[in-house]
Write a protein that binds this DNA or RNA. Structure first.
Lengths: 263, 263
DNA sequence: CAGTGGTCTAGACCACTGA
DNA sequence: CAGTGGTCTAGACCACTGT
């Protein structure tokens, strides 16, 4: 994930394809300090020792000073390689105890959370947006619970649709906390979606996101032009900015949608 | 994601809560080089400048040398702070062009992909495993396509169930490529699941993972003790080791399952 | 070609933590 | 208390890339 050669959208580069400098092709990193190694080469070499089983899961790796000597580089260089491997979940480091190969590597995947517009345009399809309904309501109990809002909090409730080449792609059911974002009441959501407005207004926030499967009820089926009872992939997201909840959204995708990544 | 103070399982620490050294409490990082700053302090300070709007999205940030002077630290220290912010998707760096605040930050979330056993035991429930069926079959066409297997490839097909406190939790439909893992044919999957065997056998591999929603058919409904037609959250994963596909699995969760994270 | 980030170094001190 | 990783430095050279 640090490696600039990783594809930008995916993660945890196990296959750290390093750009090979042909001057270095002949060197055998496992042997002597024939040439100084870069941190990427060190990282790649250690990685291969792990994946090829030379260093078994759970076993202790030489310490940084020793590795630096054997690779013929500075300790800081080894340190960076090891730190990234630790971030990638492949090794475990503890002071005094040393560094070990993880017995069962942490499996983690990183997902991009794109704006719908980009998601659609990246497919090469034409994006279209439409606002289905807009109202200001007292926040219902489930929403107040979810966002930790006070009793009596008011929210802007929007229902929108996103289309790809004219076909329904995603249904958006959004609540904006007017206590934190009163200016949302004056925003015009008929031309662009609330997501784009929010990104422009509060670009940096923390979020809680969850994925699940839901059944198409009558209304959703009509919006998404699918059968009632279809299984739909759903994303819910709540975001906060400086402690205040500002929005909750439920995004429901058309049938068959998948979210994919590599790691 | 680099910050050791982040919770271990989640990601992209926007709220980089740094452990405050009380000796430093009085210093104002935005002012002079009254005291040397650590990379975490630099990172936190830059982050706050961004989130609080002092540095607008799209705007240019001072270069490393200038920042190092204003924070009273070495350029390498600023570099590490900035590199991590770039990894977190908050800023964009280009040689010669300098560093800019991302106009719309890259939203990405990191998910842990736990073993089912851990997932269940972490809930405080008792884990139970059961093998429902086992057979060696020619790989069906869809599987050969998905894993890029040759015609005539043989696969071990396993169907398993995972229970939490006796209730069905997850249905596992797994195919193991016997071309790459012939020893799987001799493994005993009656006591422990194929996942644990695979982790022990080929701990490091690359994977493609995808999430979707599927409908419970008759068989799934019986396995999961739910109604036919229930919407089920599904994870599919294919893994490769050194270019050879070794397994494909479809994991279907009991109704109502959610996968959640923060970022 | 010049400005910016990318990386490396040799050495230093610090912080944790296992024995 | 001693060994290991965590971080910082001051300086250097390199690799891109905008102008």
């Amino acid at each position: 994930m640090h490696d600039p050669s990783d594809p930008p959208c995916h993660a945890a580069g196990l296959g750290a394809a390093i750009k090979l400098d042909y001057k270095r092709i002949r060197m055998n990193l496992s042997e002597g300090p024939s040439m100084k190694a870069t941190y990427r080469e060190v990282k790649a070499d250690i990685l291969s020792k792990i994946t090829k089983g030379h260093w078994a899961p759970g076993s202790l790796i030489p310490n940084e000073v020793e590795l630096a000597e054997s690779y013929g580089c500075a300790r800081a260089t080894v340190n960076r390689a090891m730190r990234e491997l630790a971030d990638d979940g492949l090794i475990e480091r503890r002071r005094k105890a040393g560094t070990r190969v993880r017995s069962s590597p942490v499996r983690q995947a990183r997902f991009d959370i794109p704006l719908v517009r980009r998601e659609i345009e990246d497919k090469g399809a034409e994006y279209r947006y439409s606002l289905a309904s807009r109202s200001i309501e007292g926040a219902p109990d489930w929403l107040r619970a979810r966002l930790q809002l006070e009793a009596g909090a008011e929210a802007l409730h929007l229902v929108c649709m996103h289309y790809a080449d004219g076909d329904p792609f995603q249904h958006e059911d959004r609540w904006i906390n007017l206590g934190a974002l009163p200016q949302a009441a004056d925003a015009d959501f008929t031309q662009t979606g609330p997501n784009e407005w929010l990104v422009a207004t509060i670009p940096f926030s923390t979020a809680e996101i969850s994925f699940s499967a839901t059944l198409a009820d009558r209304a959703l089926a009509e919006y998404l032009a699918c059968d009632t009872g279809a299984p739909l992939f759903t994303v819910e997201r709540a975001t906060w900015f400086e402690g205040d909840a500002n929005t909750f959204v439920r995004l429901t995708y058309r049938p068959g949608h998948r979210m994919t990544t590599r790691y």
